[in-house]
Design a protein around this nucleic acid. Sequence first.
DNA 1: CCGCCCATCTGAACATGTTCAAAAACGCCC
DNA 2: GGGCGTTTTTGAACATGTTCAGATGGGCGG
Lengths: 222, 222
Amino acid sequence: MVIARGTTPKAEETRERILDAALALFQERGFDDTTMRDIAEKADVATGAAYYYFRSKEDLVMAFYARAADEARDVVPELIGRSRDLKKRLRAVIDQKFEQFEEHRKLLIALVRIGIDPKHRLSPFGKETEPMRGESIEFFRLAIDESSTNVPKDLRADLPALLWMYQMALILYWLFDDSPNQKKTKLLTDGTLELVVRLIQLSSLPLMGPLRKRVVALVRAI
Amino acid sequence: MVIARGTTPKAEETRERILDAALALFQERGFDDTTMRDIAEKADVATGAAYYYFRSKEDLVMAFYARAADEARDVVPELIGRSRDLKKRLRAVIDQKFEQFEEHRKLLIALVRIGIDPKHRLSPFGKETEPMRGESIEFFRLAIDESSTNVPKDLRADLPALLWMYQMALILYWLFDDSPNQKKTKLLTDGTLELVVRLIQLSSLPLMGPLRKRVVALVRAI
DNA sequence: CCGCCCATCTGAACATGTTCAAAAACGCCC
DNA sequence: GGGCGTTTTTGAACATGTTCAGATGGGCGG
């Protein structure tokens, strides 16, 4: 996350300059091959300045992620509003993230290395990223609510979080998908999304009650 | 992996001394809080010596993993031989790994950070770890072969690798499972293992042929 | 025993993320 | 405008993973 510095216009401008320099270099050479000295130099500040605005090199990646979240906040509700079909809505939410991340795969690989450890300060599963995670999950709740597919009450509470985890898994696969244009991810998304929507539909059939309860119980326990 | 140094007894002894020192310190303080200088000092060598035997700090973790694999090679076939029941066999293979790793959770977290990136030299999914991965997968093939549960021919080829991935997922969950004594992992293992065996049994029913083929095709494609 | 080669080992040097004390710039009150 | 407290910026210093040119020493042919 970002330190709450940079309230004055000038400071804010410096912060942006550093972040822009960092992201440009990350994209160009990758995370590991970009040094903090490079970033500072490109932003025309001393090495230490970056640490005045960002707690660590990794926080710069997080700041990128926060920017993406800002953008999503403006766009996603409108995307969801375009259809009431659950599958289309989910597709829209997921595709939006893929588009945002398209040009930053190298960068996000660094983020994954951090994120896999839930104890790390910046893990998407950790405490500090709660607001951003919550917002992402909220998008899925929006997509479910008042969609044309009926979702059982007892699923409503946890389904958004499950869908978020599903999205995370897709993104993870996508990051390391070396097939041309990440074709395999497209395949995987198409196949599994269909499956997911089917499962949700099935789960509301009357006979499914007990099974659904067992699944919900397991999910809660874990 | 390990550099092919240490052919003379004396060198071999030095190598072991460094590895022992490293593992002791990793376990004591964790990976990040152990410096190469600490390790060298504890092993009574100069800092550079460690790099004569190990290409990097991370390679020391890998050497631990290799040791564990050595041990498994001696033990696992016997464990599998104790029963023909598929579930029991799988349990045995999986539990053996858990027991081995019990006291080294902190260490393995470092390994995961590396391993999540398939492009990293030491990723369990990468080229360089192929032999060790192959051996682990082979254990699952052993467990399937001549077990009391019939496994369809077209599954035999890929099932061991799938089971290995399943094991990896369990280990990942276990690593970050903070419930007392990793009780949740026990729950998860029990629940999913039952499920897995059921699925395998189901898959050999006559009607399942087409569905099975679709799943196999998807797995192959991905 | 000598001299040579090569595996082994040393420790200083290097690169880079990070910290920190001090300097500079800024805003504000008088 | 001058003084003063705060914010911003600087650049040297530090910690640590890693590299490398050279020292060490042990074995072997002569």
